[in-house]
Design a protein around this nucleic acid. Structure first.
Length: 284
DNA sequence: AGGCAGGCTTTTA
DNA sequence: TAAAAGCCTGCC
């Protein structure tokens, strides 16, 4: 099927900037996107960013049915949020730095990823760079995830369930290059399998505040404030969550010595964090 | 109580 | 050799 959209949708930026770890660019310009147990090939029709040269709104080819699109991929890509409007809330005169970052980050969206996969991915992420994170996620999937075949006939593995992760022992987890984080992954799998951690309930709750979600997540062994806020933003889709890592700490120190105006940018602080993170990091 | 130093696996630049 | 989308433990 074909997707036509005027809103931000830059597949390169989404794939490369560290919110997800299982997108793979193919030789024909399509991205193979793994999400839960599903696989989607999505390709910009002009082979680039989906920005045709004045020939109308960008078009993308997707190898799924309309039904699957509506049920799985439209929510996953968060196509019901208007990211152009979120960017338009920034006043360049008031905040030139954020305006520049948002201009550079045009096309980024915050995916609605699977909460369990997000939790494990960001537990794995600590003290590591993106290629290393990808490698460990792929190892985990190969060793414990359900084998599948995509529409191009290529094999892949679904991200393993908590129970499937529990089937791995210490040595198998170490073989996934988890290092000292193997205990954290195992503890999270046990909590989820035993029902002490119900990520779906956290995601779907209307009552719980971001703070309460953070408390629930940081109660897990190996999950601190940074990983928790990444899970809240990327896995629970609370767009106000604002992960503070070493880079963002530097940004806030350098660009906002008087303090960052969280109130001004609520409830989209997390989206702006994505712009600043990528902008400041790419500038180095 | 809350803050801080040191340690931790592995990969990449 | 240092740094990488950190967190835990032990000490003060």
């Amino acid at each position: 099927m074909t997707l036509v959209t005027d809103d931000d949708l830059d597949l390169e930026k989404i794939a490369e900037r560290g919110q997800c770890f299982r997108w793979q660019k193919m030789a024909d310009g399509a991205f193979r996107v793994l999400h839960g147990s599903g696989c989607l090939y999505i390709r910009p029709e002009d082979g680039g960013k989906g920005t045709g040269a004045g020939a109308g709104p960008p078009r993308f080819t997707l190898d799924c049915t309309e039904e699957e699109f509506g049920r799985i991929w439209r929510p996953y890509l968060d196509l019901d949020t208007d990211y152009r409007a979120v960017r338009a809330r920034i006043d360049p005169g008031e905040d030139p730095f954020l305006a520049a970052a948002a201009a550079a980050g045009e096309g980024i969206r915050v995916l609605r990823q699977d909460p369990w996969e997000t939790l494990v991915s960001f537990i794995i992420s600590q003290n590591r760079n993106i290629p290393a994170i990808r490698m460990s996620v792929e190892f985990l999937a190969e060793r414990a995830g359900t084998p599948m075949t995509d529409r191009r006939g290529r094999a892949y593995h679904a991200f393993p369930s908590p129970e499937q992760v529990l089937s791995l022992d210490r040595d198998a987890l170490l073989a996934c290059r988890l290092g000292y984080r193997w205990k954290y992954v195992l503890a999270a799998a046990a909590a989820a399998a035993e029902g002490r951690l119900d990520l779906t309930a956290l995601r779907d709750s209307r009552e719980l505040t971001d703070r309460q979600l953070s408390d629930a997540l940081t109660a897990l062994y190996g999950v601190g404030p940074k990983v928790a806020s990444c899970v809240i933003l990327f896995g629970l889709h609370r767009l106000d969550a604002f992960p503070v890592d070493v880079w963002i700490r530097r940004v806030l120190g350098a660009e906002y010595p008087q303090g960052y105006p969280f109130g001004r940018y609520s409830p989209y602080n997390g989206v702006y964090q994505q712009y600043m993170f990528a902008f400041y990091r790419n500038a180095r």
